[in-house]
Amino acid sequence: MESFSFLEHFQIWLKAYLILSLFSFMYKDNKFYKLSEHVFAGLSAGYYVGLIWQTVIIQQLVNPMFDKGEWWLIFPGLLGLLMFARMIPKWSWISRTSLAFYMGSTAGIYLIQTLHGFILPQVLSTMVSLDPSNGFAATLLALIIVIGVISTLIYFYFSKEHTGFMGVTARVGIWFIMISFGAHFGYTVMGRISLLIGRVQFLVYDWGESIRQIF
């Protein structure tokens, strides 16, 4: 491996310190952890401001208005600024129009997107052939999907009491749900461990190499 420059060493040691200061919480709460935690919260909030300033306010609003003469962008700009009226209780009602525009237009997109992009294709692909001539494996899989979707929907349907046929189907639903949640749990364990592996890889490979080069 190439030898690190002074800046690279500094960056690696800084990252290592931050990682270890946060990990120290696993032993017990302490000042190093608290400091890192609060700096982290601040930097993350500051990131939003910098990003929005450059990519939205400058690139999408100010530059087109002044360079290209797209004066009508003053309207979304004003709508955006009106949002800040929420900070003053007496004037907070002024922000309603901006919020209404945001909520209304998002709702318009969501309505079509959920019906056309989620419900129709998902229902359509549940309408599968249960014909045994498709072969045992295909029929079994189709049966699992059809029974599972219906029983899950019934389990989450609370407008009617779960008794009789509804009760039995909801009971089947909970068994399906337990299997799916088990799979989800297995995947979640995997995901969390992967993140820790990433940190350990940094400490062993990068920080370890830096230590080796320095000492």
């Binding site: 549940t126 699992i144 029974i147 979707v149 899950t152 639903g173 749900i177 799916s180 799979a183 989800h184």
Partner: peptide, 9 residues
């Protein structure tokens, strides 16, 4: 199978 059915529901 089982997971797809529940997630779909």
């Amino acid at each position: 199978g089982f997971n797809v059915a529940v997630q779909r529901g």
